[in-house]
Amino acid sequence: MVHAFDFTAPDSYILNCSTLLTELPVLERAQAAKDAGFDQVEFWWPFDGNPTPTSAEVDEFITSLENAGVELKGLNFWAGNMAGGDRGMVSVIGAEDDFAANVAIVVEIGRRTGCRAFNALYGLRTEGQDPSGQDSTAAANLDLAARAVAEIDGTVLVEPVSGAEGYPLKRYADAAEVVAKVRSEGPANIAVLADFFHMSVNGDDVAAVIEVEAANFGHIQIADAEGRGAPGTGSLPLRDWIDRAYALGYTGQVALEYKQDRATAFDWLSHVTQTA
């Protein structure tokens, strides 16, 4: 069945509250998303790079979602110090214990919020660590994460990323290879996150990937290029790509993961409730 997708309606999308509304504290962003017309949100790991926040901190985060009346539809696993340049800890040798502890907290957040999609950023190639050893570490960590979130019918997502030279998963095929390796050894609840911005910037023929892989996408995120701004600020045919993905069997949702100031971030959408 072809998904009926309204490209300009806020409630068609999941809003990423870690790339948007960043002028506000994390605990105020869910309400700001709701005020802007969005009922569904996703976050990168929202605890300042700490893999094991306190129960009180987790409670505060979940309460901010509940009070706003929004659904948490996506959450990243701990990814290290993103502001400091980290892009995930899945493949970093020596971080296994912290990652495992983080997985347990992610599962609990998923259980309490209904979130079922969990993005595991792969991590950078690290000086002094053998790349094959890092890949083996990543496979083990992803296996652990997938088995853990399976308890709540969750899915682990793996994505290609741009803008970080040391990040080894540049194109869709790179992420798909990692997913296939994990699946071959056990859990099937792992899929590629198709971020059309990252894929395009890294040289993927996004339209061609959609033709072959759309039904296998675990999630779609969008931003325009160049610039990673809102749809319409660049040259990517995002509407065409989304429509084609659904026509070819994609059954998930679309998340807005672009970067733009709060004052103008949603000007491209129709029927937006203006925030104060």
Rank of each mutant, 00 (worst) to 15 (best):
G229K: 02
G69N: 03
W268A: 01
D11N: 13
A36L: 09
D11M: 03
W78G: 11
V272M: 05
I242S: 02
Y167C: 08
N141Q: 12
V92K: 12
R112C: 00
G232I: 03
D143R: 14
A79K: 04
E127Q: 14
N67P: 10
A263S: 15
A104I: 07
A263M: 09
A223D: 05
A194V: 03
T233K: 04
G229V: 01
D243T: 04
V41H: 05
R239W: 06
G37M: 01
E151S: 12
M89Y: 04
M1I: 04
Y250H: 05
Y172D: 08
G154E: 00
S136T: 13
V41E: 05
Q253K: 14
A4L: 07
A207Q: 14
V201P: 15
Q253H: 13
N216G: 10
G84I: 01
G49Y: 06
M89Q: 10
G49H: 08
E226S: 12
E42H: 08
V254I: 10
H198T: 06
A148H: 05
T275P: 11
I14K: 03
F99W: 06
E226G: 09
F7P: 14
A9V: 06
K73H: 13
A140Q: 14
C17Y: 08
R262Q: 14
G229H: 04
G163S: 01
A120C: 07
A265C: 05
V106G: 01
R171M: 06
F43H: 07
W241T: 00
V178C: 09
G37D: 06
I242L: 02
F61N: 04
D224M: 00
L248W: 10
D243F: 07
H219E: 02
I222V: 08
R29P: 13
G227F: 03
N50E: 14
V178R: 10
Y167S: 09
T251E: 15
L248V: 04
T19G: 09
A173V: 13
F266A: 01
P168T: 02
G203N: 02
I190R: 10
F43G: 04
R111C: 01
N67K: 11
S55F: 11
P187S: 00
R147I: 01
G227M: 02
G84K: 02
V26Y: 13
G74C: 02
Y167P: 14
A245K: 03
V182C: 07
L248Q: 12
T113M: 08
Q40L: 08
E159P: 12
T113Q: 11
A140V: 09
A225R: 07
A150S: 14
A173D: 15
V149W: 06
